[in-house]
Structures are given as structure tokens and as C-alpha cells.
Amino acid sequence: MKTSDFYYDLPKELIAQHPLENRTSSRLLILDRKTGEMNHKIFSELLDELNSGDVLVMNDSRVIPARLFGNRPGKEEKIETLLLKRVSGRIWECLVRPGKKMKPGGRIEYGDGLLTGIVKGIGEDGTRFIEFKFEGIFEEVLDKLGEMPLPPYITERLENSERYQTVYSKNNGSAAAPTAGLHFDKILLDKIRDKGVHTLYLTLHVGLGTFRPVKVEDINEHIMHSEYYDISHETAEEINRAKLRGSKIIAVGTTSTRTLETAADENGMIKPSSGWTDIFIYPGYKFKAVDVMLTNFHLPESTLLMLVSAFSSKELMLTAYNEAIKERYRFFSFGDAMLIK
């Protein structure tokens, strides 16, 4: 299967540059993957698609201000650093631009020396392993110096950085938001719970995979980067009880989907666990845990489009995307949503 099989032509003006004022006012395309039927609704009407006993699983990872701008000592040229994941202690794997000049031993100073980075090594894909030196608490230093790492296709300034966080975000660590969850507000979540739907949380810190395009034509040759996840005993047990009683497991976003499928056994039962996952889901994959998926619209030729194509089919997914383009849906991080059932 080829990467080019997942290409579609998207008019630039359909790339959402800012979030809607009301989170739940986004549009919602509902796709029946068995019949191919499509319906157009508003996100707040998701409530009508859920039943008592269902389980809604969300990723509570919180985006950190992971984009830093600094200088090499004595040089004026700006060095951009994007923190991807903590490797150990004070050492992080980072994207650095321009990277060619940052060899092992190289130093970067941020905020007039409030934070200093020393390159300790270079990854196979060109990432840098940087040890940070600072006084005090790293998260507080990052809050002072860092910026929200918005995707490159968003070119307009985000006035309120909390709009790139889900309302239930809790655990710091992501370099990008789990964007399917951006559509929920606390009022809708309360209504969902009042209907008897169980709302559960897991954590997957979104990392390099979000920023790296698929560069090979044969998708079997693509290597996913690992991301840290955690599923608690409480979440696993609640999901397993729902599985046994025949209720549906609804994953909010591709990150929740990948985490559940990582932790599921062949019967779809979830093992409480934490660690690193590099699971790559593309057509041909047999889903074990997830029954319904709520997701945004993804970039052409991306691993995320491959994942949702595996959940339905490539042909049906591209048909649905063309329908969304025809209906002028908003695409990508701040765009509209799709419920695949």
C-alpha cells in the first residue's frame, strides 16, 4: 500500500486557523462504516449518538509550552527548539532548527541565560538530545520562556492558549494537543454523564509522530516514533466491564485509539499499563478494543488518515473527506469533527 493512496486535494481556505468561540458549535459528520451513510450535525448533538452504559475514553494529556527560541553564545542567529519528550532527568529529545550547526557539545542560551541547553547527541532522524541547565523548577522556567507549539499550517496568532488545551487536560507532556477533545466543554460532558455514559481518561503524550510526515512511498517502511502512555487500573477495569456487558467503547481521538489498541489483548480486554508505544495502524489492522471513534479531519498522506482508513476503509474515508470538502467543513486541529461508528 502506497502513501500516495491517501492523498486528497484540500482547498487551503478550509484549513481552520482559529477555534470557534463555542467549542461545541463545530460541525459533526457522522459516518456509518457498515452502510456508508453520512449525516451532518452539530457537535453538541453527539449526545444523541451515545447510550447509557457506553464508555467515552479521552486523553487527558496537556500541551506544554514546548517551543523555545534561543541563540548560540555570541551569535545573533535564532535557534528554534521544540521539546518532544523527556528522555531522562533533564535530557529531552528535541527538534532543532537550523539543526546542522548544533553538533554534540553545542550550547543554546534561552532567555538571557535563564535556561541553557547542551547537545548531548543526535538521533537517527536528526533530532537532538539536549540536556537543560537551569535554577528552580523546569516547568516554571518553561512557562516563562516557552510558546505553545501550534502546527505549521496554523499561521494566525492564538489569543488564548487554553483553546489549544482540552477542558479536561491534566498531565503535562504533549508537544501537540489531542485535538478531537477540543470540541467538548464541561456542560456537554456533564450532560453525557447524566445520560449514563461513563467518561474515562488515559494519557498519551503526543510527540514527534505529529510533526513528521510519511517520507516513504511504501507505508510498510514507515517507522513510528514512540510516545509515552498510561492507563490506570480504574480505567482498564471500567472498560473491561463495559466490554463484558456489550456496551460500546468510544475513543476520543487517534491518540486514545492507539493507546487502547496498544494495551488490548486479542479479546479487546485492556491491561492497566504504562510505557512507550510506537503502534502504527493502517488498513488491514484488526481493531480489538475500539467500537466507535470520534476524530478530527487529518492531513493528506498522514499516519492519522491511515489509521481512520483502517477503522472504516480507505475508499469510504476518502469519500467522506470529499463530502466534507463539498460541504465546506473546517479541517485539521481547530476544525470540525467526525464520528465513525
Rank of each mutant, 00 (worst) to 15 (best):
Y8N: 06
Q17K: 07
R23L: 04
R33N: 13
V57A: 04
N59C: 07
I64H: 05
R67P: 01
N71Y: 10
R72A: 13
L82M: 10
M102Y: 05
K103C: 01
P104C: 09
R107A: 03
I108F: 02
G113H: 04
G121T: 02
F134E: 06
E135C: 03
E135L: 09
E135G: 14
G136N: 00
F138L: 15
E140D: 15
L145G: 02
L150M: 12
P151H: 10
R157N: 12
A177G: 00
G181E: 11
D185I: 08
D190K: 15
T199Q: 13
R212L: 15
R212T: 15
P213S: 05
V214W: 00
N220I: 09
E221K: 15
E221F: 04
M224N: 03
S226A: 15
E234T: 11
E237C: 07
E237R: 12
I239P: 11
L244E: 14
R245W: 05
G246F: 07
K248D: 12
I249E: 08
V252N: 00
G253A: 09
T255G: 01
G268C: 10
I270A: 04
F280M: 11
F280T: 03
F287S: 03
E301M: 15
S309T: 04
M317K: 06
Y321W: 05
A324I: 01
K326F: 13
F331Q: 05
M338P: 07
L339I: 07
